[in-house]
Design a protein around this nucleic acid. Structure first.
Lengths: 141, 141
DNA sequence: GCTTGACTTCGAGCGCGCTCGAACCCCTAG
DNA sequence: CTAGGGGTTCGAGCGCGCTCGAAGTCAAGC
């Protein structure tokens, strides 16, 4: 597979793929006689995993470190596992933080007037929200 | 309150606070006769909210837009609410994505050999994980 | 034989969100 | 009177993660 196809299949651009090779995220690709990169389909699995790491906010230099360890073979497995465990902990913490923020956002949104009508129209998730905060029937405003 | 104190209390640096004022995230602060900024404590609430938006990944230019609307008074409430609703949807989607990625991470981690011993030592969260996949009582190791 | 277009390397540039330093001003305490 | 420790404005610089363009090579199709 040439770089254009890999780009299409991986969702990255050819520029980015070359950049990733340059910095060590992707292994140096075999070149054909025209020095065009020739990829094996298995690279897609690795790129998929890298994309997960990226999605979850791992900095590139850490991904590079992980890639280097991977390249050094089974002896580095413990270290790799530990990296992923640390990363997982960070991601979990981040998720918690986001969920807390979602509550704040919910509160703020329901604090805006005129919400009710549009709630009917836009709200895709009617549960758990209509909590009229006591007997204060919003007579006047 | 002067900028140094606000910095200490808000967790931002004085440099950042000035930067935020410059770009319109923070209202132009009153100056005392020495042209030092003099903040009211209420600004902390606003900064807190901005920090939430930042935490949840809202780009600064959007926060600036929100701040500008806020500054234009109650007439913009609908638009502000809509912004927050859109943002909330993005955040929710992102949380989902992270949770999916956590599963991948879990799988990858448990794929590494030698996990068991260290699990005992490092795992802070014993629930839900030790799923010994059948009756395999870990006799040997 | 020539055009087209996908590839190559290399280095510069960009958008984001700060971060920092220079040069200056003012207030207070010793 | 002086030293120190705030504060001010202004503009440049930085780290990140790409993104892009220039200039060249090569293979295939007309």
């Amino acid at each position: 597979m040439k770089i254009g196809e890999l780009a299409a299949r991986s969702g990255l651009t050819a520029h980015t793929l070359r950049y990733y090779e340059r910095i060590g995220l992707l292994p140096y690709a075999d070149r054909n006689r025209s020095s065009h990169r020739d990829y094996d389909a298995s690279i897609l699995t690795w790129i998929g995993f890298l994309t997960r790491l990226k999605t979850t906010g791992m900095p590139i230099r850490e991904m590079v470190r992980y890639a280097a360890l991977r390249n050094d073979g089974p002896a580095t497995e413990t270290e790799r596992r530990e990296m992923l465990e640390r990363h997982r902990a960070r991601v979990r913490a981040h998720v918690d933080e986001l969920q807390e923020s979602l509550l704040v956002l919910d509160a703020k949104i329901s604090g805006y007037a005129g919400a009710d009508e549009r709630m009917q129209a836009h709200d895709t998730e009617p549960s758990l929200r209509r909590k009229p905060a006591g007997a204060r029937t919003t007579g006047a405003r």
